[in-house]
Simulated scan of single mutants.
Amino acid sequence: MTGEIIVHDEAFRFLVNPAAGLKRLCSGMLWAEGPVYFPQGDYLLWSDIPNNRMLQWIEGLGMRVYRSDSRNSNGNTRDREGRLVTCEHLSRSVTRTEPDGSTTVLAESYDGKRLNSPNDVVVKSDGSIWFTDPSYGILSDYEGKQAPQEQEGCFVFRLDSTTDELTLVADDFVKPNGLAFSPDESLLYVSDTGLSHQADGPHHIRVFDVVDGVTLRNGRVFAQIEKGVPDGFRLDRQGNLWSSTGGGVQCFSPAGRLLGEILIDEAVANVTFGGPKNNRLFITATTSLYAIYVAVSGAV
C-alpha cells in the first residue's frame, strides 16, 4: 500500500517519521527520473524522459514545464557552482546549463566514438563529473533514438574539471545506472540494472573504493534488489543508502543491511534529498512525484 513504512531493522525507526506521511505532489508523467533540488531557489527539477521534457515543482505553486525540449533528459545534478548538469539520451551527451539558459556540451564521445546514452551523473567536491553510460537511450525511440552502439560496452566515466579529460573508470557492468558517493567520498556506489534486458542480468548496487580521488578499486556487491532494479539512489549524512526499487524505496545501512522500506504502488526510478533542511526525500515514481519528510538529512 502506497505510503506504508516497513521496518526491517529497529535502526530504521530513527530515520523515518511516520507522522509526516508520504505525499503525492503531482502526476501525469510517462517516466519520471533524475530529480535534483536547488536550494538557492527552493525548487525541484526532474525529467519526464519519453515526453521529452523537464519539469519543475515549487512549494505552493505546483508543477510547471521547465524545458519543453529536453533532448530526452534523464539524470540531473548540480555542479559546485550550482549549475544544472544533465544526462541527455537524444544527444547522447552530458551538458551543463549556464546562468543565461544556454547549454554547454561537457562530454559526447570517448576514444573517438559517440557515447551510448548518459544516464545518471554526480559531481565530486573537486568539481569532477562522474556519470554512467548504458544503452537505454539508443535501444528504441521511446526514450531517445534507436541507433547502433559505438562504444564497446556500457561504462562509467569521470570528466576532469580542470583538463576536461574523459576517463573510463569502470568497464565491467552490464547496464551501469545510478551512482552516488559516500559522504566522505571515499566510496562510490554504482547500480547495475542489466536485469531490464537480460533474464539473468544483475539487479544490484556495487561499491568501490575511490583511490586518490580518481580511481576505482575493489568493486563488490553492496546490496541486491529483489523487486525490480536499483535505478537511482542517494545517501544520507549517516551513510545510509536510499534506493529506488520496483515497489518503492529501500534503505540500506553503510554495511549493506536492509533497514526498511517506503512502499509505493508504482516503480520508483530515483530519489533525492531536498527542502530547506535537506530532510525531505523526493521520489520520482513512473507517473508521479512523491515526497516525505524523514528524520535524517541528505549527504552534501
Rank of each mutant, 00 (worst) to 15 (best):
A147N: 05
L45I: 15
V268P: 00
N17T: 15
R67C: 14
V94N: 08
D236I: 14
Q151F: 09
S191M: 01
G274H: 03
E108C: 03
L45A: 08
K23G: 02
D184C: 06
V294G: 00
S73Y: 04
L259W: 02
M63Q: 15
T86L: 06
R257A: 09
G41F: 10
S102C: 00
E108P: 01
N279C: 08
P118H: 08
G201E: 00
H203E: 04
E81T: 12
L106W: 13
V36M: 11
G228L: 09
P39L: 05
Q198W: 00
S102W: 06
V123K: 03
D172H: 09
I6Q: 11
R206L: 06
S161G: 14
P118A: 12
H8C: 13
S102A: 05
H197Y: 08
D111T: 02
S117D: 06
V249E: 01
G256Y: 01
H197Q: 13
S117F: 05
V210P: 07
G247D: 14
Q40F: 04
K227A: 05
S191Y: 00
G275I: 15
I49Y: 09
N52G: 08
A269N: 09
G274Y: 02
D172Q: 02
L235E: 01
P276F: 03
W130T: 04
W242T: 09
